[in-house]
Simulated assay, not measured.
Amino acid sequence: MPRLLVFGDSLSFHGPEGPCAADEPRLWPNVTAAALGGSADLVAGAGWNARDLWWSLIGDPRVWADLHKVDVVVLAVGSMDTLPSPLPTYLRTGLRYLRPDGLRRVARKAYLAAQPRLAVALRGRPTVLPTRLTIHYLDTAVGALRILRPTLPIVGVLPSVHRADSYGGVHTARGPAEAAMREWGQRVGVPLLDLPAVVGEHVLSGRGNPDGMHWGWEGHASVGKAMAALIGPLLAPEAP
């Protein structure tokens, strides 16, 4: 009964109507686990990128405990790294700390209104995380995992696509990021699930979440099955 440890962003726990509890069986990590006859532990957050993965790996004692017990690690981050971020990440994420509450609401509303226009005007630059840093944090995480458990299978994903009005439909950084991640995956021996190939048409045709970013249950089912097919051959056969 294989146990998966999945590091993810909101694509791992948002369904067609919004965020779900991690044990929702239709979420793709649970679809993958069910197809493999096992279970999935999800460590994720909205907007998480490769840096958040690394911070979780070094800062969450629950992760430290899980790493001694799991049979495969899934690095399902990298998609949010490629999104336009007109404000530096530390300022954008810091809006939640503004006080009083009225000021926070006004600032957040103003930013959300400006974000799609700025994304178009700046042609998708800067991004949430530069590609070189995405590769750096992924590489550092894999190196640390292989020191801890040298034979532990590790897989990842290529950045997903979006049609979100909140980003002005802009996603110019995704292509170069995908190319860099493909090269990295081949270099370090980490198989990568091609999310655009699996779920791209689902998203771009409007069959996913109305926000244009997240997936419907059809998309989760497709990704879950594809991830199971990627992981299956990497798992050691159970002893008789």
Rank of each mutant, 00 (worst) to 15 (best):
A228S: 07
G200I: 04
R125P: 00
G156M: 06
S166V: 09
L234H: 08
A50S: 13
S39R: 15
A114W: 02
L193T: 06
H202L: 12
Y111G: 06
L192T: 05
L5D: 08
L75N: 10
T89Y: 03
L193M: 04
T134E: 07
A114M: 13
D71N: 13
V120D: 01
A229Q: 13
P88N: 07
R187D: 07
T89M: 12
Y167R: 10
R96H: 13
G156P: 01
P29F: 10
A226P: 00
A180T: 02
D211M: 08
D139A: 11
A35H: 09
P240M: 03
P25A: 00
S39H: 11
T82E: 10
A173W: 10
A239Q: 12
V77S: 04
M1I: 07
I231V: 15
L118I: 02
N209H: 15
L129D: 01
T82S: 15
M227N: 02
A110E: 02
G208D: 05
D81A: 03
R163Y: 01
V203W: 01
L195N: 07
P176Q: 11
L138W: 13
G102V: 06
A164Y: 09
G168A: 04
R3V: 09
A21M: 08
T93F: 11
C20E: 15
V6P: 06
T82G: 14
L36G: 08
G224N: 09
P29I: 08
L53E: 05
L4R: 04
P61N: 02
V70M: 08
L230S: 06
V106L: 15
S10D: 03
L112C: 04
Y167L: 15
A46N: 11
G94A: 01
A180E: 14
S166Q: 12
L42D: 12
G232A: 15
H220Q: 07
H162F: 07
H202C: 12
A121T: 02
L11Q: 09
A22P: 09
H162Y: 08
L27V: 06
D71K: 05
G200M: 09
P150Y: 00
P29A: 11
A121S: 06
V190K: 08
D139E: 14
G216T: 11
L83R: 10
D60M: 09
C20H: 15
V223S: 06
L98K: 10
G200N: 08
R92A: 13
A173G: 05
E201M: 08
G200P: 11
L95G: 07
